[in-house]
Structures are given as C-alpha cells and as structure tokens.
Computed example of a mutant assay.
Amino acid sequence: MDGNDTDLFGNAPPQADLFASEERPGYEFRANPDRVRRRLNRFLAEARAARAMPWPEREARTIETIFPQMANWLPDDEADQLRFEFAQEIERLKKAA
C-alpha cells in the first residue's frame, strides 16, 4: 500500500499498517563490564564471608538467577570462572543451612 491507498469506503489504512514494513531503530543495551565485574565480585565476596546464606530466601533466588546472566557481559573465561566459584559458594551455603 502506498500513501494514497484507501479501502472500499475511502478510509486510509490504520496507522499500525503504515509502519508494518518499516524497520524501527532499536535500543541496544551494553553493560559496562567493570560495573558488572564489581557487582559479581561483591556477591561472591558476601557469599565467601558468610557461614550461612547471607540473603533472605527470595533475594538469594534472585541473585542465583541473575549472577550467571550478568556474567554473560564478561569475557567467556572470566565469566565461566566466576560462575563456577559462585556455584561452589552457593552449594556450601545451602549445606550449612
């Protein structure tokens, strides 16, 4: 449809159809690796320093979920090492409970 097309009743197409074939510029988020690294290391340090789970249950589940995802913003070898160390600490803390 070009801009002059109308339906049988003389109505222009709905606005949503006007943009259906156009690509829209998207927003691409890029995390700051230094900030990510600091935050992950902070979580890891808290876990290492604790004798029992240092976070309330809900927060602990959230951190366990986001930690591996946040690590994706780091180089693969660094991310894998941090994930491994964090998983070890979480297992230790769960056994201590």
Score class of each variant (00 low, 15 high):
1 M>A: 15
2 D>K: 09
2 D>W: 05
3 G>M: 12
4 N>A: 07
6 T>E: 08
7 D>T: 09
7 D>R: 14
8 L>D: 05
9 F>T: 05
10 G>A: 07
12 A>E: 10
13 P>S: 10
15 Q>P: 02
15 Q>Y: 03
16 A>V: 12
16 A>R: 11
17 D>M: 14
17 D>W: 12
18 L>G: 14
18 L>A: 10
18 L>C: 07
19 F>P: 00
19 F>C: 01
22 E>V: 10
24 R>Q: 12
25 P>W: 06
26 G>Y: 02
26 G>L: 10
27 Y>E: 10
27 Y>W: 11
30 R>V: 05
31 A>T: 02
31 A>R: 09
31 A>S: 11
31 A>D: 03
32 N>T: 12
33 P>G: 04
33 P>I: 01
33 P>T: 04
34 D>A: 13
34 D>G: 02
35 R>W: 02
35 R>L: 14
36 V>T: 12
36 V>E: 03
37 R>P: 00
38 R>I: 04
39 R>G: 00
40 L>Y: 05
42 R>I: 01
42 R>S: 10
43 F>R: 00
47 A>L: 05
47 A>I: 04
47 A>S: 09
48 R>E: 14
49 A>H: 07
49 A>N: 11
49 A>S: 11
50 A>D: 08
50 A>C: 08
50 A>Q: 07
51 R>P: 02
51 R>D: 15
52 A>N: 05
52 A>R: 10
52 A>F: 09
53 M>Q: 09
53 M>N: 12
55 W>D: 00
55 W>R: 00
57 E>S: 09
58 R>F: 09
61 R>D: 15
62 T>P: 00
62 T>G: 01
63 I>L: 13
63 I>D: 08
64 E>S: 07
64 E>P: 00
65 T>M: 10
66 I>T: 14
66 I>E: 15
67 F>M: 03
67 F>E: 02
67 F>L: 13
69 Q>N: 07
69 Q>V: 04
70 M>P: 00
70 M>A: 13
71 A>G: 03
72 N>Q: 10
73 W>K: 04
73 W>Q: 13
75 P>M: 08
77 D>C: 00
77 D>E: 13
78 E>R: 13
78 E>A: 07
78 E>W: 05
79 A>G: 12
80 D>S: 08
80 D>R: 15
81 Q>E: 15
82 L>Y: 07
82 L>V: 06
84 F>E: 13
85 E>D: 15
85 E>I: 01
85 E>L: 13
86 F>P: 00
88 Q>I: 02
89 E>N: 03
89 E>G: 06
89 E>V: 01
90 I>L: 12
90 I>S: 06
92 R>E: 10
92 R>P: 15
93 L>H: 09
94 K>W: 04
94 K>Q: 14
96 A>T: 04
96 A>W: 04
96 A>I: 01
96 A>S: 15
